[in-house]
């Protein structure tokens, strides 16, 4: 401390010299404090409004500990159950793959409507973007419930639910990919006398196909996760077994199913990451 003082001289002169750096900006500081206080107040209000109470938390955590204890070790009891879970897991995968691919088929042409460099009509573009946005605003589970009303309980409703929510996501992603594409190949084709459609087909689509392929694989991966839960509302897949076992308080079965989901998701992650790398190279993760 003494050494510093010797070098800089009196602390007061330092304060004078570097007034800007050492003074406190009370306006911005009070604004920050005010924001933090407001956020905290809303948090406390939320906790009270949502009926959090210390007694309930202590009781619940105790219950949770008991459940965790009862879950160990994961035990499916019979091979017949393992088989039926495995079949449901296969169904889950099938839902994810089919839903995603159907969404690609529908979203691919639609996404061109939203891409600035393909369709020049502003109104059409704005409308299709709002369309994709509103589809994305609704969760997959809500779509699953709606499709159950239309096609009945079962995995097909799940396929349609995954498809619907993915159309929104793909529409946005594909149109962004088209807009980010290099203009030069498109111009090259136009300069050799190609029509607008030919310039899209031979100039634009070859550029965006690898991007799309990798996004589709990524979505199959993430839809495997979504597909595991849509069974909770009755749209097929492993989720049906899961919610059933939880409702019957069969904790060892529950933990076995959760373990199965985690392992399957990990395998799908691994495989799809490998394929994605081989499609677009390791740089674009």
């Amino acid at each position: 401390m003494n050494k510093t003082r010797q070098r800089f001289g009196n602390i007061d002169t330092v304060r004078e010299k570097y007034a800007g750096a050492l003074s406190v900006d009370w306006v911005s500081r009070s604004r920050t404090i005010g924001l933090v206080l407001a956020a905290f107040a809303l948090l406390v209000f939320g906790l009270i409004h949502l009926e959090f109470s210390p007694a309930r938390m202590i009781d619940g955590v105790g219950q949770l500990g008991l459940i965790a204890y009862l879950m160990l070790p994961p035990n499916p009891e019979t091979w017949a159950k393992v088989m039926s879970y495995a079949i449901s897991m296969g169904e889950t995968l099938a839902i994810a793959i089919l839903g995603t691919l159907l969404a690609v088929v529908i979203a691919f042409p639609l996404s061109f409507l939203a891409a600035r460099n393909v369709i020049t009509n502003r109104i059409l573009q704005l409308l299709s973007r709002r369309f994709f946005d509103s589809i994305r605003g609704v969760d997959t589970l809500i779509w699953a419930l709606i499709w159950i009303n239309v096609v009945g309980l079962g995995p097909f409703a799940g396929v349609l639910a995954i498809m619907t929510s993915d159309i929104g996501a793909f529409g946005k992603l594909f149109s962004e990919a088209a807009e980010a594409a290099d203009r030069r190949p498109v111009e090259g084709i136009k300069s050799t006398g190609g029509s607008h459609i030919q310039s899209v087909r031979f100039g634009l689509i070859p550029q965006i196909l690898p991007v799309i392929a990798s996004q589709v694989l990524y979505y199959i991966e993430s839809n495997t996760r979504s597909a595991t839960i849509i069974g909770i509302v009755g749209a097929g897949g492993i989720g049906m077994h899961l919610s059933e076992q939880i409702r019957m308080l069969e904790w060892q079965q529950t933990s076995f199913i959760i373990l199965m989901i985690l392992v399957t998701v990990a395998i799908i992650d691994f495989v799809s990451t490998r394929i994605r790398f081989s499609i677009i190279g390791p740089t674009a993760r």
Binding site: E91, A94, V159, G236
Partner: peptide, 9 residues
């Protein structure tokens, strides 16, 4: 294969 498993008719 997926269609068969997911009971798409």
């Amino acid at each position: 294969i997926s269609c068969i498993i997911a009971e798409v008719r």
